[in-house]
Amino acid sequence: MANMKATRESYGEALAKFGEEYDIVVLDADLSKSTKTETFKKKFPERFINVGIAEGNMMSVAAGIASTGKVVFASTFAMFAAGRAFEQVRNSIGYPNLNVKIGATHAGISVGEDGASHQCLEDIALMRSIPNMVVINPADHVEAMAAVKAAILHDGPVYLRFGRLAVPVIFDEETYKFELGKGVQISDGSDVSLIATGLMVPEAIKAAEILASEGISARVINIHTIKPIDVDIIVKAARETGAVVTAEEHNIIGGLGSAVAEVLCENYPVPMQRVGTRDVFGRSGKPAELLKMYNLTADDIANAAREVIKRK
């Protein structure tokens, strides 16, 4: 079995690692043990600031620090980063185009037992709609580490989406190269394209294996940067395979599925199907159970692929 690691762990490690080379400041809102910014705090206590349970304040404080020329990471759960503090992010960070990196952990339904109030399934939609904001949703540990570095090097606001649940490490640290705004083709195929993000990427890889056993050739594409989205890789996939399935741990409204649909509609419409939560709130439960209950598994992606192929 593959190594397992939650991308929030990678986030904490990345901050501690790149904190050596870069003069970053890290803020948290009373969740440093959960967001793993604690890893950074232990190493660089003088560059760590706990703002308390005050996410709106945190975002505007981060904006102020960034206005002096520093790179700032502001961390809390996705629900409170993108949700609670949306307008502060929009007006204090997005509008002035400040160098704030929002490290949002505990995104999606895989939060598990805390339930609907803590399972953010809207953050991609919210953050994607803010001008200047870059939105990144890494699939595994290797990609998450690389994404943090890319966020530091990028001049402007970035929303980084991390998970609570341990997920398989699918990329090789030695060979993996992260390019902001570029999709990653994981495997080639000709009958359908499976375009996935975050923890749905390993599920899409499994789905392609299921489909292959039935004689269906599926291309798998990992979209780590949801905004700006890689138009070329999506259009090419549509042109060469004629059908697209998107897969994300997010509402089908406004997330990756919507972003891909926008690209296809304007450039090269083909039948497509979205795998994601279907405009419903989550609930408490064990992460694996919930992913199944809400149809976020390899089987669900394979089913969607069989359906969309019929519509070609």
Partner: peptide, 14 residues
């Protein structure tokens, strides 16, 4: 049954 997927007893008051 608190916090179980089959339960009505959600992790936070519902």
């Amino acid at each position: 049954s608190f916090r179980q997927a089959h339960s009505y007893l959600q992790g936070h008051p519902d």
